[in-house]
Amino acid sequence: MYGVERTGVRFVMSSPSDPDRIGDYHAWYDVYGTVVTHLGHLVNCFRFENPAAAGSVEDPRSVAIYDIVTPDPATAWPATESSEGYPRYLYDDPRAQLVSPAMRGSWAHVGSLAKNGSRGAVTGVHIILSDGADDASRERWASQVLDTGLFYAASRLKLIEEAARGEALVNGRRISFPEPPTWLEIFETDQRDPLTAYPRTLEALAGSRRAAEIEQRQAGSFTFYSGYQAAH
């Protein structure tokens, strides 16, 4: 996952509206993700889930991270959504009603850190959405997190202003989205149990704290589910 020369990411949090049909939810999303990553603006999609999550707006079950490589990352999602190839037909599939969005937005890449040496394939991520403070504060914390050896890469991204992101027509439903936080941090791990990697990191960093001015809005750990990579 780490290593793409991304200029930003499209980030979506969602849950299945019917947990008993999680297989259908994933099947629909797999098709959708494959199509949109071949339109030339979002080149990769990596999907993660936490089966223990409540499936609410505050505790969504799944996240999708689409890598943006266009020179101006602000243009990637509008160009994708307005493309002739955008798979609007997929919303006619009844399984589309299973996708219950919790938050979405586009963030521009600000900086990344990565550990030297070999690593395994990504097994999960820890996501932090926050406001306040500056990039330097987040970079210092990311460096400490990577020093524990439980994560091998950390990316810092800043929200791109988007018009009319408060409401959208999704699957024939009018959905209201919360205002996305300014900052998105993605920590990548190859640990066998990715859901415990961040709690173990905090134990290892006992006595160290993130900058007090960072206002955390939402955070969670997720295991790798699937990925689609377009040729580029």
Rank of each mutant, 00 (worst) to 15 (best):
D20Y: 08
R21S: 09
I22H: 05
G23F: 11
Y25A: 03
Y25F: 15
A27E: 14
A27C: 03
W28M: 04
Y29K: 02
D30T: 07
D30P: 12
D30C: 00
V31S: 02
V31H: 10
V31M: 04
Y32F: 13
Y32M: 07
G33V: 05
G33F: 07
G33I: 06
G33H: 08
V35S: 03
V36A: 01
H38G: 14
L39H: 00
G40V: 11
H41N: 11
H41P: 05
H41V: 07
L42D: 08
N44G: 06
N44I: 07
C45N: 14
C45Q: 15
R47K: 09
F48A: 13
F48N: 12
E49K: 03
E49D: 10
E49G: 07
E49R: 07
N50A: 05
P51M: 06
A52P: 01
A52G: 05
A53L: 10
A53G: 06
G55R: 05
S56C: 00
V57T: 12
V57L: 13
V57P: 01
E58T: 08
E58W: 05
P60E: 07
P60R: 05
P60H: 08
R61Q: 11
V63I: 15
V63H: 14
A64G: 13
I65Y: 04
Y66P: 11
T70D: 15
T70I: 11
P71R: 13
D72M: 04
A76F: 05
W77Y: 14
A79S: 08
A79C: 03
A79P: 00
T80F: 00
E81V: 15
E81P: 00
S83D: 15
E84D: 15
Y86I: 00
P87V: 06
P87K: 01
R88S: 10
R88K: 06
Y89K: 02
Y89V: 04
L90V: 02
Y91K: 01
Y91C: 01
Y91T: 01
D93T: 02
D93R: 04
P94Q: 10
R95G: 00
A96M: 07
V99R: 13
V99N: 14
V99Y: 10
V99M: 15
S100P: 02
S100D: 09
P101D: 09
A102N: 15
M103R: 15
R104W: 14
R104C: 07
S106Y: 10
S106M: 11
H109E: 14
H109D: 13
V110H: 09
S112R: 08
A114F: 13
A114N: 10
K115T: 11
N116G: 15
N116S: 14
G117R: 09
S118M: 07
S118H: 07
R119G: 10
G120K: 13
V122W: 06
T123G: 02
T123F: 07
G124W: 05
V125C: 04
I127T: 13
I128M: 08
I128A: 09
